[in-house]
């Protein structure tokens, strides 16, 4: 007894499951998000530089913000001195969001792309937006 029908069905299910991402994407790549830096505050900057270098900010901002949070809230330390020796006021809402006043086109873009739901926004919000 070969049960070839059952084996073929099984193989098709197997292939279907493993080919799912390919079928789902059907040859159309999603565009890699380019977080917009097009805000008045950034435009006004003489040197377009974040608190730390871009690669660091991209890869480590979550840890960095977490650290800021603890410093400000728990340690009462509101000043951050970056690698270049420059002082920055520690505040997500009042420092980060001042430049990046475009949460939708900046934060959310990558977060949505990578399917990340940070709980920052449970309390914090975009001070420039009209909605909570």
């Amino acid at each position: 007894m070969y049960d070839s029908g059952k084996v073929i069905i099984g193989l098709l299910i197997f292939a279907g499951i493993f080919l799912f991402p390919f079928v789902y994407q059907h040859g159309a790549p999603a565009e890699k998000p380019k977080p917009s830096l097009d805000t008045p505050a950034i435009k006004a900057l003489p040197v377009k530089k974040c608190v730390e270098d871009t690669h660091f900010m991209i890869t480590t901002h979550m840890q960095f913000l977490n650290d800021w949070r603890d410093q400000a809230l728990r340690d009462g330390n509101r000043w951050y001195v970056n690698k270049a020796g420059k002082k920055v006021w520690i505040s997500l809402q009042n420092t980060c969001m001042k430049c990046h006043s475009n949460k939708k086109d900046f934060c959310d873009k990558c977060h949505n792309y990578a399917a990340v739901q940070p709980y920052c926004w449970d309390c914090h919000y975009d001070p420039n937006g009209s909605k909570l």
Binding site: A30, H55, T59, Y113
Partner: peptide
């Protein structure tokens, strides 16, 4: 050794859509 997750996704998504790219960084 944190990596740029969007770059990783661009690569993985490129693979899944048969438009592979190797983003920087």
């Amino acid at each position: 050794y944190r990596v740029d997750i969007t770059a990783v996704k661009a690569l993985a998504n490129g693979i899944a859509s048969f438009h592979p790219v190797v983003p920087e960084g």
